[in-house]
């Protein structure tokens, strides 16, 4: 019935892995399938690291993050009652900053204290020729939303974003 949800779960399973049970996760990001839109997933040794990676996955929907120079920093703060809603707020804050500042980001630093997130995003103004931005993200959605520690030191933060 729910093929894509199962795909998403399978991807989480793969991300969690079984071959390196005691090793903290290497920070990385990936996209997962959604027909009309796209799923963003961050993986890292801490929830904060997974949020940073999810942010990179978000930018990668639009452009190759490696093309974006981290020359200008902006600060972001959010607060939400659950880690899932905090992820949504964090990604939506980035979407808002990218849209209003006409910027793209490539480096993120996140600190999470309970319900509160303090983040720094570094990037530069959009340069159409160099960045070739493909599609703007409209918003982070609750579809396939999950923030969890798959095993000790292996955090996953993900959701589908509307493009």
């Amino acid at each position: 019935m729910n093929e894509k949800s199962e795909n998403a779960k399978a991807c989480i399973g793969a991300a969690a892995g079984t071959d390196s049970v005691h090793r903290p996760a290497e920070p990385r990001w990936e996209h997962f399938e959604h027909k009309a839109d796209i799923g963003v997933r961050g993986i890292g040794p801490t929830m904060a690291a997974a949020f940073e990676q999810a942010a990179t996955a978000l930018v990668a929907v639009c452009t190759d993050p490696a093309r974006v120079r981290p020359v200008e920093e902006i600060r972001i703060q959010c607060e939400a009652p659950t880690p899932e809603l905090l992820l949504i707020d964090w990604l939506n804050a980035l979407i808002f900053e990218m849209a209003t500042r006409k910027m793209l980001f490539s480096r993120f630093k996140v600190q999470i204290h309970g319900a509160r997130l303090e983040g720094v995003a570094a990037g530069e103004p959009i340069d159409v020729a160099r960045h070739e931005p493909a599609v703007e993200v409209k918003g982070a959605t609750y579809a396939e939303l999950a923030v969890h520690e798959a095993r000790p030191g292996h955090w996953v933060a993900q959701c589908v974003v509307d493009v």
Binding site: I88, I95, K138, G139, A140, T141, Y142, A143, L145
Partner: peptide
């Protein structure tokens, strides 16, 4: 961007409102 932002904000508010009004949501969206 205006429509996207409105939807983002009200989606959040409506999630709380649904709970408050006792509306069962098969999925959060």
């Amino acid at each position: 961007g205006l429509g996207h932002q409105i939807n983002t904000e009200y989606l959040k508010e409506m999630t709380a409102a649904a709970q408050q009004h006792g509306i069962h949501l098969p999925e959060r969206e």
